[in-house]
């Protein structure tokens, strides 16, 4: 694996968001608003898949930005801003999962449409009966299946996949974000992607739902 050797990087020069964060540190409220506007959707996307609820994800994203603001005075650019931001997000997500699973508020079921409940078997039956357009059927069903596949991963696998897939982070960046070694990230992602391939295998072959396949068989 091409483990990136860390070189001294002047992130202030190479990352405009690092400069924005330094402006926040120096009391520029507008710079903070710019960072919120730029990263809110990206954080929401990851958080929603982590906790399975758009509402909870919004709360967590706000918590992330609150922590960013709290940390502004001690901010030192030692990484890309996004890496630093998602490190905070990873901690917030991990805390939320620990505390809310304890309170059983998170059921960790994928919901492709955010706060909407996961499509039920009744919904699928309605879809199959033709009450919903075929194009919508395919899309909704596939989204549900993929979201469910994501929930089959453990928390760390899921976060690594989300950072890799949606944030385009390298193994080194994921390692830094999740406080893991690059080798651990490599193993984590390999297991996650093999698991996804196994879960989604039926759909790769036939594009059908497992229940359909079982019925056919």
């Amino acid at each position: 694996m091409a483990v990136q050797v860390s070189k001294p990087v002047d992130y202030e020069q190479t990352d405009p968001d690092v400069r924005r964060m330094l402006d926040v540190r120096d009391g520029d409220a507008h710079a903070f608003e710019e960072l919120v506007a730029k990263y809110q959707d990206r954080l929401l996307n990851v958080m929603r898949h982590v906790v399975g609820s758009a509402d909870i994800a919004e709360d967590l994203v706000q918590d992330v930005f609150l922590r960013v603001y709290r940390a502004r005075k001690t901010y030192r650019p030692g990484a890309k801003f996004s890496t630093w931001l998602f490190t905070i997000a990873n901690n917030v997500a991990a805390n939320a999962i620990r505390s809310r699973v304890r309170r059983k508020e998170i059921h960790l079921q994928g919901s492709p449409s955010g706060s909407q409940p996961v499509a039920t078997l009744d919904h699928l039956a309605m879809v199959k009966s033709g009450l919903l357009p075929a194009r919508q059927l395919d899309k909704l069903e596939l989204q549900q299946i993929v979201a469910e596949a994501l929930t089959e991963l453990n928390d760390r696998q899921r976060m690594a996949v989300l950072l890799n897939k949606y944030e385009g982070m390298s193994y080194a960046e994921i390692a830094e974000t999740m406080s893991l070694s690059p080798q651990a990230v490599k193993s984590l992602l390999a297991r996650a992607r093999v698991a996804l391939r196994e879960i989604l295998e039926p759909y790769l072959e036939s594009g059908s739902h497992p229940t359909d396949k079982e019925t056919i068989e």
Partner: peptide, 8 residues
């Protein structure tokens, strides 16, 4: 297939 998930 992960690309099929809607963006939030």
């Amino acid at each position: 297939l992960l690309d099929t998930l809607p963006e939030t």
